[in-house]
Simulated scan of single mutants.
Amino acid sequence: MISDTNGLLDAVRRQLDDQTAQILSLDSKGYEDGFADAVTGGEGVNRHSGIARTSSGEVEFKLVAKTCAEFSQGASQRSWLYWKREPLAYDSGLLDALFGLAAPRCFGVTFPDRATAVIYMEAVENDQTSWDFETYERAGRALGRFNGHNLNNPSAHRNWMAPSRAICWVNEARSTLDTLMDLKGDPVVSRWLRGALLERTFALWSDADVLLEAMRELPSCLCHHDAFRRNLMMQPDDRQEEAVVAIDWAFVGPGVVGEELAATVGVSLQFMEVEPEDTRRLEQSVFSGYLMGLRDAAWKGSEADARLGFVASTSLMLGLGALGPWLPLLRDPDFEPIVEKIVGVPKDRFIDRISELQGYFLDLGEEAVSSIRGIPDI
């Protein structure tokens, strides 16, 4: 028999619903680390499988253990990188019964010491690894149901939740954006904001307060805040509202209607999940599904509010705010292999991709400003 390690045996017993179960054999395999692990000090995700002896005989088990560790930037609850947020989200029971989305079932959260937490959860299989635009629409609908069910619901909010990711990133990027026109000679900035993109980005920055004020007036809702392609697992349709399982709840917190799609559309594009020439088709598929999901959740609000939440938050987070977390990392030669590991392409190719998308993110911001000011489309 294998002795317990940081609560693994208890987690296996909960999964098998047998408090007498003993682990006879164990195989552990690490997953590839993602962006959050790279910048937040996470110690990785491991898949544990094996044989356990139960009261009804020997049975197979498999589950996932995610280890989160404290680090300086994520020490504060108000940080979007707060290291303890996902363990607390699972431990609180908040993720046990969601509408629209499902989270992996949790089999226990342990805190081996004051600076470490381990989440034991269901090993979710992704039944649809290749996504077409109908799949993106289905994902958008699930997110609309999730957001719509949690609209203007203060009881769903906790003090350890993340503030709006768009607002956090803009605040992190403020000093860079204030001096953006002085950075023309910066090798990363000149490649990212090439040609007219630099001046357009600075012009949108001058209107950032208009966007931020408009977002404060939109209906609030609980958001995953990182619901892009890699964090959404498609399950068989017969699971109905639980057909989409979302993993990685490290950024969960309040946002506004439409804000959830900033990651679903924008980050999926940045991380090479969809080609730039299909940007508008992706947007249309996700947004139309999102509106259906909001209606499924009995939302009576206007499509214009959802659209404004999407375009304002996407432009703030990715057209402006992305300079906050990404610019220091892309300047750092030591981070180059991590970028390639996360995105799957060399650093320079990733910079080229976000440069290709910058015009789209600025278009969304300009659309938002025009909408707020009542300027008709030409």
Rank of each mutant, 00 (worst) to 15 (best):
M1E: 11
D4I: 07
L9K: 11
R13L: 10
Q22V: 11
Y31T: 14
E32W: 08
D37N: 15
G50M: 02
A52Y: 04
T54K: 06
G57R: 11
G57L: 05
C68E: 10
S72H: 08
G74A: 10
S79V: 04
Y82L: 05
Y82M: 10
K84G: 00
L88D: 05
L88C: 02
L95C: 03
L98S: 01
F107I: 07
F107Y: 15
D113G: 10
V124Q: 02
N126S: 10
D127A: 12
Y136H: 12
A139E: 00
G140Q: 03
L143K: 06
L143N: 06
G144Y: 11
G148E: 09
N150M: 09
R158C: 12
N159L: 13
A166D: 05
A166K: 04
I167V: 14
C168T: 04
R174Y: 02
T176E: 13
L177A: 07
D182S: 15
G195T: 11
G195C: 07
S206Q: 15
L218D: 07
C221W: 03
L222I: 05
C223A: 13
H225W: 12
H225F: 08
Q235N: 08
D238Q: 13
E242W: 05
E242S: 11
E242R: 14
V244I: 15
I247V: 15
I247T: 10
W249E: 10
G253V: 00
P254I: 05
V257S: 06
L261W: 06
T264D: 01
T264A: 03
G266E: 08
L269P: 00
M272H: 13
E273D: 13
S288K: 09
L294D: 00
D296S: 12
A297L: 05
W299D: 08
G301F: 01
A304Y: 09
F310C: 01
G319I: 00
P328L: 12
R331W: 07
V339P: 00
K341R: 15
V345H: 07
R349D: 08
R353S: 07
G359F: 04
Y360N: 03
E366I: 09
S371W: 03
R373C: 11
G374H: 06
